[in-house]
């Protein structure tokens, strides 16, 4: 889940997929961060929140201006399990992508 995106413009786009490993429908959110875990300005996901049936895979685009940091983390996070008292745990899986702006 590492990759390099090359672009001749000041913008980029990439298509990513996420799967639901649970046997129940789950809701997920997409977070975009730089390598210092800070939000990346002017970069967004086409679907920041989505639900997936059990075992299904969904796709979404991440696009925007080439970030100054050149590297972004795309993290997909499941909802917290359980409500009520206790210590709910949620899972987050990140991909690491370098955005390279090529010279024409």
């Amino acid at each position: 889940m590492k990759g390099e995106v090359r672009t001749y413009s000041h913008q980029f786009a990439m298509l990513l997929t996420a799967s639901n490993p649970y046997n129940t429908p789950q809701r997920f959110s997409v977070a975009l961060r730089d390598e210092w875990n800070q939000p990346v300005p002017r970069v967004q996901a086409t679907v920041p929140n989505f639900s997936l049936p059990p075992g299904e895979t969904g796709a979404f685009y991440v696009w925007g201006d080439v970030p100054a940091s050149k590297r972004i983390l795309v993290c997909v996070t499941s909802q917290f399990f359980a409500t009520g008292a206790g210590s709910p745990v949620r899972g987050e899986v990140c991909g690491k992508y370098d955005i390279v702006q090529l010279q024409q």
Partner: peptide, 13 residues
């Protein structure tokens, strides 16, 4: 009262 403390587990390259 009732308390809830969420924790996130992350897998990162």
């Amino acid at each position: 009262g009732s308390y809830q403390l969420p924790v996130t587990v992350r897998c990162v390259p």
